[in-house]
């Protein structure tokens, strides 16, 4: 009888200790305190969440790809637009231009140089294909005026210019030269009238930009 009770004591106490130890271990390791079914449902929900997130990642990647191609094409169009804008600015006279061309100096001789002489000169240069023209650094643009005031002084872009008039033009220098130099052309005419004209061909003519505003107030 004593033996039975002793064995039962050993059994009971040892089992209690095993259980206490097990509970201690479990409480130190969070997840394992959950029941199997709980863990299973937890796992399922996490899997679903994971799937969802992966889907959103995929979607985001796709949209990123889309944006990338879009920006690439946009950059292309932007580049084209910029080129167009640059060209437009150049032809409007809003940029400094450099290139081969001619530099003509006209000065008063026995007779004064009139505004008509300059007009004719500019016109001839335009005819010869000049891309940019300036008179004493006043750029000739679409609405440039070349006028005289009481036959005393000449205004270009409403700025007074004085002799010697330095007319620069960028374009095919051979064409420009021949337009000036042609027999019975403007050079001959001016010299015959007793005015001084000379020119220099150069590969590096620099023409400054137009500094005024091309305002449009009345046109629509």
């Amino acid at each position: 009888m004593c033996l039975t009770i002793g064995i039962i004591c050993i059994l009971l106490v040892s089992v209690v200790f095993v259980q206490v130890k097990t509970v201690d271990v479990i409480e130190n390791s969070g997840v394992s305190t959950m029941r199997e079914s709980e863990l299973r449902s937890e796992l399922a929900s996490w899997k679903a969440k994971n799937e969802e997130i992966e889907n959103t990642i995929k979607e985001n990647e796709e949209s990123i790809e889309e944006y990338k191609t879009q920006t690439q094409t946009e950059q292309g169009t932007l580049g084209l637009l910029n080129q167009d804008l640059q060209k437009a600015y150049m032809s409007l006279g809003y940029t400094n231009v450099k290139g081969q061309g001619i530099e003509i100096t006209v000065s008063d001789g026995n007779k004064r140089v009139g505004y008509g002489d300059l007009l004719v000169l500019v016109n001839e240069l335009k005819y010869a294909g000049a891309e940019a023209i300036s008179i004493n650094d006043e750029r000739i643009v679409a609405n440039t005026d070349i006028v005289d005031v009481q036959s005393k002084f000449i205004l270009v872009n409403t700025q007074r210019v004085m002799s010697p008039y330095v007319v620069k033009a960028i374009g095919d220098s051979k064409y420009l030269e021949s337009a000036i130099n042609i027999k019975g052309g403007i050079k001959d005419e001016l010299e015959a009238e007793g005015k001084n004209i000379s020119y220099v061909l150069s590969d590096e003519i620099l023409i400054n930009k137009y500094n005024g505003n091309l305002e449009i107030n009345y046109g629509e």
């Binding site: 002793g6 004591c9 050993i10 106490v13 040892s14 209690v16 200790f17 095993v18 199997e36």
Partner: peptide, 25 residues
């Protein structure tokens, strides 16, 4: 005496036994 001895022996045995898995605890 038997009970105390049994309890002490049980403590010693229980300390040395491995833990069991949670589903059986």
């Amino acid at each position: 005496v038997t009970i105390i001895l049994g309890c002490l022996l049980g403590v010693a045995v229980g300390m040395n036994l491995p833990t069991i898995s949670y589903s059986y605890s």
